[in-house]
């Protein structure tokens, strides 16, 4: 029996595979029967504690709570919070925990949501901490895979772009590795390969097969899922390196011809130019549906944490 009441979500590893499947299943049901859940969180408050800007994740969480009849409060950058006055995370959360029933935190410092969870009396959800974890993006990715592929095991998955700094890639690949039978195709420039420590972890702990490529075309014919990522300017120390690499891995209609007819293209968004606009019309491009599914999976997660999932 899955029980997530009062639990924090800091890393995808905080959830068992059964818990992940239960959240995804409820998210699917919420999508199909949205009206049934419109009052589920009446009287509940979500605090959105965003110490750095994030349009998408913040609005997705807010939409999720509002769609369940709850309310929201919060701040959207550190300068409008007491952190600007030098308050510790522990102090902030001890106060804010009395204002809300569940909180999502995004913070530029890696590990900050974990610190918050140690002092909070309400569930803390990590909404992204630096280059570390982003567990609800992983849940979003998983509900998308469940929707379009129908299984989370025995998959051929290509990750393309910035595999070194991309936290969404790290979280998803590690979670998919916990399901049996998948093979991962890693497409990146040499400067942005998956960190060695993570590769060792995947091969030693989970026995994963990893295949590396320098060109997207080589991986495309083999995969069920192509997970694209943006090469983020803010991760580079050097402008010249950014300019040299940013166009290296662009998906366009020609490259899509190499892919399986049932392959799907995912992207955590925002996209810059790594997926040409012409690909948007291809039925295999599911990144906008992925963003929509993120709302439902966040609804399901919060419903479980607040103990209203079975009402």
């Amino acid at each position: 029996m899955v029980n997530l009441v009062g639990r924090h979500l800091i890393s995808p590893n905080d959830l068992s595979l059964e818990e992940i499947s239960t959240i995804v299943a409820l998210g699917q049901n919420m999508k199909r029967n949205r009206a049934d859940y419109a009052e589920l969180c009446r009287g509940k408050i979500l605090a959105t504690l965003f110490y750095e800007p994030s349009t998408r994740t913040k609005l997705s969480f807010e939409s999720a709570m509002l769609r369940m009849g709850g309310s929201i409060l919060g701040f959207s950058d550190a300068s409008s919070s007491s952190a600007a006055k030098g308050e510790s995370i522990a102090d902030t959360i001890r106060v804010l925990a009395s204002y809300a029933d569940v909180a999502v935190m995004r913070h530029p410092r890696e590990g900050a949501p974990k610190v918050a969870s140690e002092y909070s009396t309400i569930p803390i959800i990590n909404g992204g901490d630096g280059g570390h974890q982003h567990p609800t993006q992983t849940l979003t990715d998983l509900i998308t895979i469940d929707t379009y592929i129908g299984r989370m095991e025995n998959l051929e998955v290509a990750f393309c772009g910035d595999l070194k700094y991309g936290r969404t890639v790290h979280s998803l690949i590690e979670t998919l590795a916990r399901f049996p039978g998948s093979r991962f195709h890693l497409v990146s420039p040499e400067e942005l390969v998956l960190p060695r420590r993570l590769k060792e972890h995947l091969t030693k702990i989970y026995g994963c097969e990893l295949i590396e490529y320098r060109r997207m075309e080589e991986a495309l014919p083999h995969v069920d899922i192509l997970y694209m990522t943006r090469i983020q300017k803010e991760r580079f120390f050097n402008e010249a390196d950014y300019l040299r690499l940013k166009n290296s891995f662009i998906l366009d209609a020609d490259k899509m011809k190499l892919a399986k007819q049932k392959m799907i293209v995912m992207h955590p968004l925002p996209r810059v130019n790594e997926i040409a606009y012409e690909v948007d019309d291809d039925p295999r491009a599911v990144y906008f549906q992925q963003a929509e599914l993120g709302v439902y999976v966040r609804m399901a997660l919060m419903a479980h944490q607040l103990g209203v999932a079975n009402q």
């Binding site: 510790s88 995370i89 522990a90 410092r109 590990g111 610190v115």
Partner: peptide, 26 residues
């Protein structure tokens, strides 16, 4: 950056005395 938090580690590799951070996992 947060003076309230005590750096906490778990042994990663005894041979080269490396530790995994409890918070950022680096």
């Amino acid at each position: 950056i947060d003076a309230y938090v005590t750096p906490t580690f778990h042994l990663h590799d005894e041979a080269n005395c490396s530790y995994t951070c409890e918070y950022c996992e680096e």
